[in-house]
Every structure is written in structure tokens, then in C-alpha cells.
């Protein structure tokens, strides 16, 4: 596997760190030893969770096709439109920056402005892969409260924003 430049930088940092910690343990420098110990405990903690999250994300990707959602989404309006929106937002990968082009294409396909903004909001807040990590690390209460509070607020503000902008003939540009 060929490594990209960015990955090489990461590999270099990790190797440099490993060398520093190694020297620290031989020379008995407390600073490097503490860093090494912190690294080991943090890594151990995460190794227990991360493989599960990646397997779940991959299963989701294999079984649910993006096109399927987009097709269903087009006809959906009203409450159902927002429900599809949550799902579509949840399937967004990457982050906010990837949700803008999708929002634009939704708008072009005739989606309501409020639905477009709701989608951007959901793409930020309820991306499924991210939520998997959150769930396993922060616990179900944290995730439930976060989603329970933000989803209604996103829908409410998107509806208001959409209505006002629609009246002004606003358009999402490319």
C-alpha cells in the first residue's frame, strides 16, 4: 500500500515519538516515560472500541445504498421528508464540507429549502459512523440527549429559515 504525503507525516511523528519514549526509558527521563505511559493507556482504551465501530460502519455501507435513500427522499415531503433527511444526513461521510455539495444537488432536484438546511444540520449532528463512536465512548445517555435536543431544534430553525428565504427567492449556488 502506497502512503500519501499526509500519512507519511503521521508515520514520521509516530516513529519520532516512539524513539523519544524509547530513549526516555533507557535514560530514565521522567517526562518521556509519562508520555509513553499516557500513550499506552489511551491506546489500550481505544483499541477495545474502534474495531467494532469500523465493522458496524462497513456493514451499514454494504447493506444500505446511498442511491436508495436519495430515490426515496425525492418524493418525501412533510414529516416523512425530514425523516429521510435524518437518514440521508446520517449517511453523509466526511463532514460538513461534504454536505454542501449534496445540499446543492438536493436543491436542484427540487427539495424544499427547509429540507436542504435540515439536511446540512443533520449531516453535522447525526452522522451514523460518528454517532457509533460517540455511543461507545460517551455512553447512551449522552448520545440520546444530544440527538433529542438538537434534532427538533434543527427542524424548527430550518423551517423558519427556509420559509423566510423562499419568500426572498433565495437559491443555493454551485
Amino acid at each position: 500500500m502506497r502512503l500519501k504525503a499526509k500519512q507519511l507525516v503521521h508515520v514520521a511523528i509516530v516513529c519520532g515519538f516512539a524513539a523519544f519514549v524509547g530513549v526516555s526509558f533507557i535514560a530514565e527521563m521522567p517526562l518521556g516515560q509519562t508520555m509513553g505511559k499516557t500513550f499506552a493507556t489511551t491506546l489500550l482504551q481505544m483499541i477495545k472500541l474502534i474495531p467494532c465501530a469500523f465493522v458496524l460502519i462497513a456493514l451499514f455501507d454494504v447493506w444500505v445504498k446511498r442511491e436508495t435513500v436519495e430515490r426515496h427522499f425525492g418524493s418525501g415531503s412533510g414529516v416523512r421528508g425530514y425523516l429521510w433527511c435524518i437518514l440521508l444526513g446520517g449517511m453523509t461521510i466526511g463532514g460538513l464540507y461534504l454536505s454542501f455539495p449534496v445540499a446543492c444537488s438536493l436543491f436542484r432536484k427540487g427539495a424544499k429549502l427547509s429540507v436542504v438546511f435540515a439536511y446540512v444540520g443533520f449531516a453535522g449532528v447525526c452522522r451514523i459512523p460518528m454517532t457509533m463512536f460517540e455511543l461507545s465512548i460517551m455512553g447512551p445517555t449522552f448520545t440520546a440527549v444530544r440527538l433529542g435536543v438538537s434534532i427538533p431544534l434543527i427542524i424548527a430553525t430550518s423551517v423558519v429559515m427556509g420559509r423566510i428565504l423562499q419568500r426572498h427567492g433565495y437559491e443555493v449556488k454551485e
Binding site: 489511551t42 481505544m46 474502534i50 452522522r127 459512523p129 460518528m130 463512536f133 460517551m138
Partner: peptide, 11 residues
């Protein structure tokens, strides 16, 4: 990315 943010939050 989330896969970095939440482990960081956990730590």
C-alpha cells in the same frame, strides 16, 4: 473527524 474527536473526548 469524528473518529478522532470522540476518542479525544473520552480521554
Amino acid at each position: 473527524p469524528g473518529f478522532i474527536a470522540f476518542p479525544l473526548c473520552g480521554a
